[in-house]
Write a protein that binds this DNA or RNA. Structure first.
Lengths: 221, 221
DNA sequence: CGGAGTGATTTA
DNA sequence: TAAATCACTCCG
């Protein structure tokens, strides 16, 4: 009855159907440490949230089945949603911010709380992985919550999350970041205003600007 | 929802899949007059048995498709089962019962209720067709139930049934036939008994019968 | 335990 | 590969 694939204290039960069209078939139930009964994998997943990755969890046997993961991946390889995801990870790789002088802004360093997981990870892939995850999903981004992913990524990897260790974003983190964004926006506003004024002054002297570009249908962005 | 290709009272329904990997695909269901749901052509065929010929029935559209029949026939022409069937129809053609005097017994006339269908049919082919059907299948033999087979055999012919109109065998028919069989068996018994007695009387006068056939392993049947 | 809805497997 | 069939999940 104890279920080794779930956290300690979880119990599993199997009940055989005795009659009817489905006689001989069975139903599988799980019980949380507190005694709550679960009748399906979705119900279990809703309750456990991101504390346990159930992607490879087989509800009927109660075991982690790497084969399940394989099948999911095979199907998803040609899946439009997944292709979109891979597209964005590629699209975002190698990008960095720069100012008008073409100098790279070095302030893209990630907080120390964000750490990659798995082979060949570095800050560059980490950033694009997280940005991609934020871009392609409306679900919360938590990172890989299971510590087991370090030992056996093939089984424990939660493919709906980027390849980084689980992290916590505190209210203090959010406040600080909002402050930084406000400051940068103010700088941008000042720069745009100065640029506009400069152009205005210039065109005041030059009213006969070219009109060739009037029908090329290009729109400002 | 009403399905003209099936007997009256049968309903058809098409349901689009709303989610999952197969979203957008559809499933077709049929409902018997009593409300039982059918989810595939084999399931439908098992239930209808020989009352309706589904060879040319297209499950998805709910219509009879002569094109389907062509493919079936091509396949069945080389099919071992079908060859076996044709073999027996050929094997039984031209046979008739006779008594020891080699006189043909004319009592093989078929009941008036049995009528052939299609071009070039006569009582001889009819008898062998029915005998063949009984011999090669354990399923009930009903004849061609659809009246449409007269007009367009190419579409409506039920190839699992002999080429005769649908017929009903009543309890009275069965009782009469049993009586006839009993009478004929009694005649046969009398004849065999008389034959045996004649032989016994003969061998009582001749005790030195040949013993050569003692080890030829032939068994009486 | 039933059954609609969907995944998984087989067939064409 | 896609369609058809079968099997299973999951919730009432």
């Amino acid at each position: 009855m104890e279920c080794p694939a779930l956290p300690p204290g979880w119990k599993k039960e199997e009940v055989i159907r005795k009659s009817g069209l489905s006689a001989g078939k069975s139903d599988v139930y799980y019980f949380s440490p507190s005694g709550k009964k679960f009748r399906s994998k979705p119900q279990l997943a809703r309750y456990l949230g991101n504390t346990v990755d159930l992607n490879s969890f087989d509800f009927r046997t109660g075991k982690m089945m790497p084969s399940k993961l394989q099948k999911n991946k095979q199907r998803l390889r040609n899946d439009p949603l997944n292709q979109n995801k891979l597209f964005w990870e590629k699209r975002l790789q190698g990008l960095c911010a720069s100012d008008v002088t073409e100098q790279i802004i070095r302030s893209m360093e990630l907080p120390k709380g964000l750490q990659g997981v798995g082979p060949g990870n570095n800050d560059n892939t980490l950033l694009s992985a997280i940005a991609s995850a934020l871009h392609t999903s409306s679900a919360p981004i938590t990172g890989q919550l299971s510590a087991a992913v370090e030992k056996n990524p093939a089984v424990w990897l939660n493919t709906s999350q980027p390849l980084c260790k689980a992290f916590i974003v505190t209210d203090e983190d959010i406040r600080k970041q909002e402050e930084r964004v406000q400051q940068v926006r103010k700088k941008l506003e000042d720069a745009l205003m100065a640029d506009m004024l400069a152009h205005a002054a210039e065109s005041a002297n030059n009213t006969d600007v070219d009109m060739d570009s009037g029908d090329d249908e290009s729109a400002p962005e």
